[in-house]
Design a protein around this nucleic acid. Sequence first.
DNA 1: TATGAATGAGACTTCATTCAT
DNA 2: CATGAATGAAGTCTCATTCAT
Lengths: 175, 175, 175, 175
Amino acid sequence: MTEKKEKILIAALELFAQEGFKSTSTSKVAKKAGVSEGLIFRHFENKEGLLEAIIKEGEERAKILFGDIVFEPEPKAVLKKTLELGSKMIENKEDADFWKLQYKMKWELEFYGEHKMEPLELALTNAFTKLGHDRPELEARVLLVNMDGLATRYFLQKDFDLGVMIDYMKTKYGV
Amino acid sequence: MTEKKEKILIAALELFAQEGFKSTSTSKVAKKAGVSEGLIFRHFENKEGLLEAIIKEGEERAKILFGDIVFEPEPKAVLKKTLELGSKMIENKEDADFWKLQYKMKWELEFYGEHKMEPLELALTNAFTKLGHDRPELEARVLLVNMDGLATRYFLQKDFDLGVMIDYMKTKYGV
Amino acid sequence: MTEKKEKILIAALELFAQEGFKSTSTSKVAKKAGVSEGLIFRHFENKEGLLEAIIKEGEERAKILFGDIVFEPEPKAVLKKTLELGSKMIENKEDADFWKLQYKMKWELEFYGEHKMEPLELALTNAFTKLGHDRPELEARVLLVNMDGLATRYFLQKDFDLGVMIDYMKTKYGV
Amino acid sequence: MTEKKEKILIAALELFAQEGFKSTSTSKVAKKAGVSEGLIFRHFENKEGLLEAIIKEGEERAKILFGDIVFEPEPKAVLKKTLELGSKMIENKEDADFWKLQYKMKWELEFYGEHKMEPLELALTNAFTKLGHDRPELEARVLLVNMDGLATRYFLQKDFDLGVMIDYMKTKYGV
DNA sequence: TATGAATGAGACTTCATTCAT
DNA sequence: CATGAATGAAGTCTCATTCAT
């Protein structure tokens, strides 16, 4: 990966996350990356290819993030780590941008990356089963739906206090 | 409101909700509405004006939907009605389109219409207070965040079963 | 057909005939036609559509030109008129441009509009039959191939004297 | 001539002949030749230089092909060999490509390489003189024009039967 | 009110060519 | 000799918007 290719990816991630995919022109990306516009197409074929490259890169991030949870045997720890996912996602700007982009793209391209969440859902279902819940699979889904809601708020509501919410939910779940 | 103006609004709502604001060209709207492109600009000044008109129209819908909850004295009924909001929002295609657009626009334009939700949040806080909760304002927020998560899932995940989730949450809240 | 649409067609015909389809940019066409570039796409969808429109328009010309021959009962007259086709094709600039474009496109797009020539080939075969030729269908083809050769030379060789050649061939065919 | 330079020439010949000069990008040539794009420019300066190199190389072919005819003393043999040129031109793929390109370029660049044909035309004129024709120079030209027509058809009309036509013409010319 | 021709800016993309390695 | 990253100009096309009718 050349330095300029890297720069394009970073610039695009930031711009796509900020302004959306459709609204970000390739010329804007090029300018921000300090690169000729043509180079984008040499490296990524077309604008969609650039997006795909960003998403693929980010999927590695997701695997690492989720991996820790999926292999956690202790059920309470599974819940705790899931809830703490939120804070981890935004620990540095590039991560935050990536996850924001992820959500943005869900709405712009209208697909929900169900499969990506599946292992997490299973791990949670398993955890709730161990904890003796009546409807563990629904309970797992409720928690994940909640996480989606938190992300929505965090990324879109300027004054949303994510930390407080996560702490509160941790006490609710007793973890 | 002339018949053609109405047709433009309906066509635009559907298209904006389906494909997004940026991705929908005025010419597509005109074609779908069976109207000349120029007419859009005569009626709505510009593309943004069309969006604003749609949103303003929809706010009436919101007032009606929320009003019923806000003036409900019985705390359990407040929770019940809030949870049932979800089903009400999608009772007919035009409503569903409108609420989907609402969410889409949140992400495309990056603003969270906090103020719109405020009366609801107050009503919920009040309800949770009456029900003896420790942190009623946080509890209210959790519920609303959950609703955002449900909307995200419902609109984006093809096979998401909203009814089951709402029913489950009703039992959780004991309503 | 608006005046500007007409102007685009004329400008494009001239440029395509002179410089070829691929080598003529839509912006050049627009400039020559005194028209905004976008208008080309509004009227003809894309660059290929513009070419098709030109060719379709020209096919009317072809029908008229050929029609006269196809319905000629006198065999010698069929030959005579066929040979004189060449001169008729270039009687005015627009016609000449059109036929040149026709030949250019054969090479640029690699297709030979066989079907267009079929009625003419049949008429000639018929004429040669009546004149008692041994292999009338081959004789007909030879004549048409010759016409293609004449066109090639006329359009590409600056000093080629078409009149002399046609006259000579008329005497060869005794018409 | 290095092996890679040779490969570029062959790839370019094939592509130019198939798709035309303008429509063939240097990157396509490089890919087909299995060579870096830059190498084309190191060897041929620019795209036109590549074309010129191909044509120059091919002119050797022409000299050999024509030489045999020009130095033929027997007039009937001159005619026979001229007519048989057609078959010779397409005996192997590289030759066929070259001659097709030759014709393509005539139309794309709008010049008729008269000078190349001159010796042939003189030889034919001479032959027809010996055979006692009235207008030997016109007769020579008719034959060459015919050859152009045959080439046009052969290269552009998928189902054109060149052999039959050449045979028929040979009998017409009594050779 | 309504049309639809027309525009101009800017979008994405291609491509011949240069240059450091 | 050879590569491949990089560029900049130009190409096709889209789109919000204007305007005469």
